[in-house]
Simulated scan of single mutants.
Amino acid sequence: MSNHDERITTTHLANGGPEVGVQGLGCMGISDFYGDTDEAAARETLEAAFEAGVTLYDTADMYGRGANEEFLAPFFAAHRDEVTIATKYGVVRFDDTPNSTVSNDPDYIRQAADASLRRLGVDVIDLYYMHRRDPQVPLAESVGVMAELVQQGKVRYLGLSEVTGAELREANAVHPIHAVQSEWSLFSRDVEYSVVPAAAELGIAFVPYSPLGRGFLAGTFADSNAAMPANDVRQYLPRFVGDNAKTNTALLEPIRTIAAHHTATPAQIALAWVHHQAQVHGLPVVPIPGTRKRSRLLENIAATRITLTDEELALLEPLAEQVAGERYPDMSSTAVAREQ
């Protein structure tokens, strides 16, 4: 599959929402969780994304404990009127480890929004997500505060991350929700149970994070974590270690076979599958694969031009049910945990 520099097509985040490129960029890894970053290369990647038509850039206040928003600020300043800035509140980091808690407290939401505005160097956040749901705080109360931010001109559009279909409906009744974000990939399809149908029913766009299974679907991992640097969070994720990793590596074989047929990479096939879900489920789907490398960025963008056949889709259909290990060591803050 060629990586030539065609601009990607666009879609809209829900009815009346912003027009964005059909593939966004997840920016978490620039500052956190996946080892050290070459900042100059990361800035080059951001500019390459912009040139290719990527307009949705996804960050959060907990990525690098604010450092990710600060890193992105100069890029956003240079392209402010042509990009959609998405950031999030709700996960509170204690230190530079992954240790965190969840807060949906109204005062915290107001403080977090103001802090993100300062770090990003902007007057308004285009898309503001509740990063994780705290069931101890009434959803209508938290979304009500988010609606206040819209009324105050601090936020344009609202989003939710890792919610159930019922929670999405409840929130949308308080204030229009324009995007819902959760993990969705060939290895993670729990969202198809309730939240994807709810989003389709309400006309809300879906923004899949980790559409490459945190890199596993790219086929770049051996079946052990020996090569991971000490500051790579994947060494703690159940799918990447021990027998789980061996089982999951074997599941990549049909993806590799299909990739060879398309003269593509496994990552491109995995992304093409995610993009195809827009047709399957009848809603805008804007995956946000993360990368710090220009070459990977162009590879990912080329996936938007791959069309999988019915036979290929059938080969990929059973993979998720065979995956070994949970997405996180602790699944308690995820939507699927609240549905069980």
Rank of each mutant, 00 (worst) to 15 (best):
V54D: 04
V336H: 12
I85T: 15
L315N: 10
I255L: 00
P18A: 00
R189V: 04
E183F: 13
S116H: 09
Q268S: 01
H12S: 14
T45C: 10
A67T: 13
R239C: 07
E69N: 07
E19K: 06
L319T: 01
T37V: 06
H79T: 13
N3P: 13
S210V: 03
A40T: 15
A272F: 06
V54A: 12
K293E: 02
Q322S: 10
S2I: 09
P238W: 05
V92E: 03
E312Y: 02
R214M: 08
F240V: 06
L186P: 07
D58E: 15
L168N: 11
L186A: 13
A227P: 00
K293C: 11
A324N: 14
V137K: 11
N231D: 03
S185P: 14
R133H: 15
E51I: 12
F216C: 15
V163A: 08
T164F: 05
V20A: 01
H79D: 05
D243E: 09
D330N: 15
R133E: 10
A222F: 13
D134T: 10
V191I: 15
T45L: 09
I109M: 09
G53I: 10
A250D: 08
D126W: 07
L13I: 06
R80E: 15
N15Y: 04
P106C: 05
H281K: 00
Q23D: 01
N68Y: 09
G219C: 09
D190F: 10
D38C: 05
M331G: 13
P211Y: 07
L120M: 00
A171D: 07
L251P: 01
M228G: 02
T257P: 01
Q136H: 13
T164Y: 03
D310V: 08
A140I: 14
A171I: 03
L313Y: 02
R234E: 01
E6C: 15
T257A: 11
T334G: 04
L212N: 14
E39M: 09
F240R: 05
A303F: 05
L117V: 12
G219S: 07
A264P: 02
S103Q: 09
Y129Q: 09
F221C: 02
T334C: 05
A77V: 10
L25Y: 12
I258P: 01
D243M: 12
P135N: 06
P289A: 00
E170L: 07
L149C: 04
A171R: 01
Y236E: 01
D96L: 13
M28K: 02
F71E: 10
Q136S: 14
D38S: 07
Y57V: 15
R156C: 05
Y193N: 14
D243Y: 05
V54T: 10
E69L: 06
A112C: 09
H281I: 13
T97C: 04
E70V: 04
W273T: 01
L56A: 11
D61H: 10
F50D: 04
S31K: 06
G64V: 09
E321V: 11
L120N: 02
L158K: 09
E148Q: 11
A140T: 14
R169F: 05
H131V: 01
I177K: 08
V92L: 12
L308Q: 07
L313K: 08
G66E: 02
D223T: 09
D123P: 03
A303L: 07
N104I: 00
T249Q: 09
R338K: 09
M62A: 10
G219M: 11
L186T: 02
S100K: 08
S31T: 12
